[in-house]
Design a protein around this nucleic acid. Structure first.
Lengths: 339, 339
DNA sequence: CTGAAAGCGCTAACAT
DNA sequence: ATGTTAGCGCTTTCAG
């Protein structure tokens, strides 16, 4: 089965390749009849235009690159699904790149995308530092960053995570919690910084002392601590009565560890996560979570990117509001319980 | 910032473009010195080869297309992550296509991949029927199917789902269950057929009557039924004492619905899912599940595909064994409970 | 060991 | 309204 080219179609339709090309692109200066004839010829030969050649010749490959830290993360995979859907609705294909949270891979992924001549890039970066490293590479290629891990001077669609964390902490405060800890997150991530900021702001405004358990080592300590809990969940002297987890995944792990150690949620402590992943909604979990709507984020990011690609817009900065999804992992403290 | 081409490098290194191309490909007939010079020039100009042009000229785009029904499905996103990782380790990029379980989209996705000149395809098809529809389009392009939804005459990496379901049913039988129902699945899927087969084989071998709740309508009935359960979980007269769910997701939903309706698992009935997704391992759930190792499936599929692309092999057929991951959603029936 | 030239399939001036 | 021609950036014969 030989590759059928635009020349074959041209020959069959008795027109020039140019006409075929124009007919396929619905050029206004081509008569209805010719278009029909060309289309018929295409059908007959089962002609499929070669996007690669088209990309080399014209300037567009109709491909956009999506680089994320981990496609198997529920939030990111949901986001990718939305992105893919919108892109393909607009005639764009999606090239996927996973960085596994490695800045070096991220740099390489950007390079590969560029050499693939993508028309634009959607990147959920590891950190502002890693973003700064590939910024020059990307140059003026349309690019929209997903999330908070970017330097100020670029296009992005992010969620106000400072506010998200602030509202989570406020919510816990108003429920009567006074020993609220923040757990999880990778140092260097601006998402983490923002969440910590919001958390601190809330606590300090009430005269409370922020307590942060961040980074793998400290988290390891936390898991150990949970394991040492006596079954039955001792009420006394625990260092916290509420936890804000960096992500739902971490929240779920905390839930897991806590209950393994004999602690119950929300009886022994309240718990809030981030991302509002699908599994948090299950009745076993009913995890209260700060949502960063992947639907709106994905849709808006694609919209902004395509606008840039089409030259319809320049740099854009969108900060979406977070939404606290209240479920069952937080409870109101009795007055007498307060310390 | 102008696009730097192989000619620019050639000029700087004072050699011909041909030599640059050869040096970059580590052609044996190029002297060490020239290679060094060329590499230096590349560095200096920050030259990035244009894969698109390379694809047009040579025959390879170093891109493989991955088409799945739903990237946000935990099993598939985990599988994609593995695939992406292996591909990029071998210098291949991954083009992603989501079909949202629509055979028409699937057909279009295949067409788009072809026009993108992918070197090979990895497809998790909707059904053998949909696969048959795009078979001709793909022609002799290297392609490996993921899962069971393919016709016999093609390359694939699948899991023995007949055996998986059989073993699940056997396990329940040996635990003392006699009213085992199978729930969930889309009619037309061969994965479903295989699972049903295994399930039936086990039940019939024990003289039990298979009971299958399949398709959206019947499932809707099931959800309603759960909703009507009196809280407290009536023990008497329930039509089943164990459920094999088509996927973990469905199992989780069943768990959800059941407990909402006042039934407990495994006290009121045992439950087994398929796919062994990460969330099933959480302590709240501890879902017993038939695993189709995404790691091995993904790795093997990429291996087989690359072998085909490199002409190292022809059609391959791999059927991996399933593995029953025993957790906490099944219990042994007391003798007196048996009906 | 290295270079010149032809083309991969398509599009976009520039004709007509 | 349609055709001619010249590339896009790279690889690959075929000649040195």
């Amino acid at each position: 089965m030989e590759r059928v080219t635009i020349y074959d179609v041209a020959k069959l339709a008795k027109v020039s390749p140019t006409t075929v090309s124009r007919a396929l692109h619905d050029h206004p200066a081509i008569s209805k009849k010719t278009k029909q004839r060309v289309r018929a010829a295409c059908e007959q030969l089962a002609y499929v235009p070669d996007i690669v050649a088209r990309g080399l010749s014209g300037q567009k490959t109709h491909t956009i690159g999506v680089i994320v830290t981990d496609i198997s993360d529920p939030y990111l995979s949901a986001l990718c699904a939305v992105i893919e859907q919108y892109c393909s609705a607009h005639g764009y294909r999606v090239l996927l790149g996973n960085t596994l949270h490695d800045p070096q891979y991220e740099l390489e992924a950007v390079g590969r995308m560029l050499s693939q001549q993508v028309d634009g890039l959607l990147i959920s970066a590891h950190s502002p530092q890693s973003q700064a490293r590939h910024k020059a590479l990307i140059g003026s290629l349309p690019c929209v960053y997903l999330g908070n891990n970017h330097t100020p001077d670029c296009s992005y669609v992010e969620v106000d995570n400072d506010r998200g964390a602030y509202e989570a902490a406020q919510y816990l405060y108003h429920l009567g919690h006074r020993r609220i800890v923040f757990a999880g997150g990778r140092v260097g991530s601006r998402t983490l910084e923002l969440r910590l900021n919001g958390y601190r702001r809330s606590l300090l405004s009430h005269g409370l002392i922020p307590r942060e358990i961040v980074g793998t080592e400290q988290m390891a300590g936390l898991w150990q601590w949970f394991r040492r809990q006596p079954a039955g969940g001792a009420q006394n002297g625990r260092a916290f009565d509420a936890v804000i987890a960096y992500t739902d995944i971490i929240a779920l792990n905390i839930l897991n560890a806590a209950e393994t150690g004999g602690l119950r949620v929300p009886e022994d402590f309240s718990l809030i996560g981030f991302d509002d992943i699908a599994f948090g909604r299950l009745r076993h979990v009913r995890l209260t979570s700060v949502s960063q709507s992947h639907t709106r984020t994905g849709q808006l990011a694609v919209e902004r990117l395509l606008a840039q690609i089409d030259g319809r817009s320049g740099q854009t900065a969108d900060t979406l509001p977070p939404e606290l999804m209240i479920r069952d992992t937080c409870r109101r403290m009795e007055d007498k319980e307060r310390s």
